[in-house]
Amino acid sequence: MKSFKLDWLLLPLIGFGVVLVVWAISSNTWATNLPSPAKTWESSREYVLSPFAKRGEMDQGILRFTWYSLILVAQGYGLALLVGTPIGFCLGLSKTFTKIFDPIIQILRPVSPLAWLPLGLVLFMNAGKEAGTYGALFTIAICAMWPTVLNTAVGVRAVPQDFLNVGRVLKLSRWKTLTKILIPATLPYMFTGFRLSLGIAWLAIVAAEMLTGRPGAGGFLWQEYNALIYEHIILSIITIGLVGFALDRLMSLLERRFKSI
């Protein structure tokens, strides 16, 4: 019991302590514009202690901003899964489809959210006021899609031949083969893809909000940088990190649930 506490509580605390010390020393020596930990806490208190307050468009509690970001991410992420999963299935099922689309996927996959956003804005320029939202959704979706696409494809290819043979001997219809064999057998892989995709969607949100100036965790960060309130940059980074971590834990719980089948 004692060593359990030591390992899981004390040791991570040492890690946080080290970072705090480095941060404090840096802000006092070579990076004088970096707010010290104490100053950061002082100026963030209001945002953390009343996390849902709304004082103005760009002056809201940190969890309220996070909530806006989460909604946008949920939409973009949902879009990514909706588009990515069928593409993954096509890639896994058809060699021809793979030969046609694999090269283009490999080229589009490493492109950063920062590069996609301007294109998204151009694409939806005719949408007027909503151009920013659509552009952001497009960016999140297209960046987050790839892990789902690739993992689903790998999963479909890894479906044991024995299960497919069962379907063949019973002459299952295409629909039944898909719903009773292919999808259940691919589910563990799909969920690994879904988890990785969520991580990327959360990465992309910050870029999208920064460039469109939407209210949210990333938009707040960029605005406070421009307003020279550097303490809030750190507040935003910590928030974004914690939320991303929580999302990943949540997804890996789901993933494990499906792996156990």
Partner: peptide
């Protein structure tokens, strides 16, 4: 090609792990 008229019991059983006994047979 394969057809249920020639019923094959696989060497490794090949039951679908996500379906119950009844669901496997019902399929």
């Amino acid at each position: 090609g394969p057809d249920p008229e020639r019923g094959l019991v696989f060497q490794n059983y090949s039951l679908l792990p996500w379906l119950t006994v009844a669901e496997n047979i019902a399929l």
